[in-house]
Design a protein around this nucleic acid. Structure first.
Lengths: 312, 312
DNA sequence: CTGAAAGCGCTTACAG
DNA sequence: CTGAAAGCGCTTACAG
């Protein structure tokens, strides 16, 4: 009792101190699994992302940890590779009760796929805007306005005089909404959206897409918008390999503002990844507190920022 | 029984199928915490690192996951910030039984600090060479020869005609052995080792150290060896900011070969981080298998490689 | 080989 | 307010 309660009026102070001292001497540590079973809590948060190797995510993870650790939560990482199979596997493991709550980026799973988590009482914070009906599932969202940010960046390029702007995008994930924002602004300006789809959010995929873009003989773009920094950086490398000057011959911009973007002078959209992490964790931990009724899912939007550097 | 055993000779095939189908229909998932308590296993591996935000570590984590997931293990991340307090906290949490085994990089903890883990039956794989006496603790090591690699890189710079070579190093962690390798070769060549200590393995710290180096009026170095890529990249940025050309005015080399090193043409030492991760996980999982006696700690060394690019 | 019982180490709800 | 008992959901060792 002395060990569990913060205060114990009935036990004399000296006895209390003796017990605590003894526990320390003997190296007593409460057994985590036993505690978990009895209290039906794992004190673990899961973070489901495509790939920790993408420099955007480590900052997010640190943000999660910053809030999780003081609250006593561990942080588990599941990489899905942005692939349906990977996302399904993550959900399945979570359904076994490996974590109390989840912060996740899903490229493929839709609300029906995620309903199982809610049914099992595992709250979910998504790192993307809830497109539409999440039914009345208590799923929260923490995100930036991807479409709006892509639109702003496209407007920036147009203002700089670019007319032929191509976007290198991933087929799934955040690239979808970014493509929307880009296409809208292009059409508004009387220009034609032009997409080159990369099959992953990796430098290699970005480089391949860029090579394909550069191989076109006529009507070549004067600016390329990478739907993520990793894609844009791959494109820069491809340009350099082909002897094309950036921004001299072609402008390149990205999205995310990963650390390497600064080093390479990439003009990009800054997402506050650390803040996204802390906020997501906060919302999740709040929801994990025992309470009467389950509040409806909230949507929390954070601000993005256009960072102008030398690549455009 | 049908649910736990892979085969059940006594139960008719049709009945077996019916049971399994029913379990699936009903969405049965074994309860993880209960299983953990009873079997005294958490089926999670912990990864203790200074900072997931340092681009060297995500690759390592992926390597761990690659081996861990198929074996049914989750991967937990603890960031210590390379600070004694952070490392102690990680050990304390692990002592509560939050993971079955640990892969770790400790900057400060020494064998006596780690003995508690062994006493609690939690195996540890360290990502650095065991300097000396680990007693007879069954602690494994997976690493590259940091001193040897730094020596090789220093020889490379000397062969290129450099005489005044400074090293920007972190005070603790892998920088210690790298500094040793560098200093040995310098002295052998009749040159004077020169250190600038950065107070973290971050770009900012690297840039500050570089500015200090560049501020020297006389006997300025012609080459700078960053004890890690992040430090070297910070130094490159500082040089650029000061209008110093790389490699024209000063050569810069690093250590790790993080993804950004390639993009920026940094000459560096390649560490096979993914392979370090898979190997560490393999060793750990092997040790976690129930068996009679506890084998002594093993030391496994992987190969490094000097990657020549344009910065030197 | 099978099935029923014990028990992992806690926390929580409950009787005193 | 306190202390002893029940029980979380499994797995494992054991009797039949």
């Amino acid at each position: 009792m002395v060990l569990t309660k913060a205060e114990t009026p009935s036990v004399p102070q000296t006895t209390r101190q003796r017990i605590l001292q003894l526990a320390r001497d003997v190296g007593y540590q409460p057994n985590h699994p036993a505690r978990n079973l009895r209290s039906a809590k794992t004190m673990t948060l899961a973070c489901v992302i495509p790939d920790i190797t993408n420099p955007f995510y480590p900052g997010l993870v640190r943000g999660l940890q910053r809030m999780a650790a003081p609250a006593g939560y561990d942080v588990l990482i599941y990489d899905t590779d942005g692939v349906p199979e990977g996302e399904r596997r993550a959900i399945e493991w979570l359904l076994q009760g490996r974590a109390d709550g989840v912060v996740a980026t899903f490229f493929h799973m839709r609300v029906p796929d995620l309903a199982a988590l809610s049914r099992h009482g595992i709250p979910l914070v998504r790192l993307e805007s809830q497109n539409k009906a999440k039914g009345d599932l208590p799923i929260d969202s923490v995100y930036i306005d991807n479409a709006g940010a892509a639109a702003a960046m496209t407007r920036f390029l147009i203002a700089r005089g670019h007319r032929k702007i191509s976007m290198i995008r991933g087929e799934f994930g955040p690239g979808e909404r970014r493509a929307l924002g880009y296409a809208d602004v292009m059409r508004e300006a009387g220009l034609t959206p032009d997409f080159m789809v990369a099959d992953a959010y990796s430098e290699e995929a970005g480089a391949i897409a860029m090579h394909r873009l550069l191989a076109r003989t006529r009507s070549r773009a004067t600016a390329v918008f990478g739907a993520s920094d990793v894609l844009a950086l791959g494109a820069m490398e491809a340009a350099r390999a082909d002897g094309i000057a950036v921004p001299g011959d072609i402008a390149i911009v990205g999205f995310d503002d990963i650390p390497a973007a600064k080093l390479l002078g990439l003009t990009t959209v800054r997402q506050p990844e650390f803040q996204l992490g802390t906020l997501a964790a906060k919302v999740l931990i709040e929801r994990l507190k025992p309470r009467g009724m389950i509040p409806p899912g909230r949507s929390l939007e954070l601000k993005y920022e256009i960072i102008t550097r030398t690549s455009a």
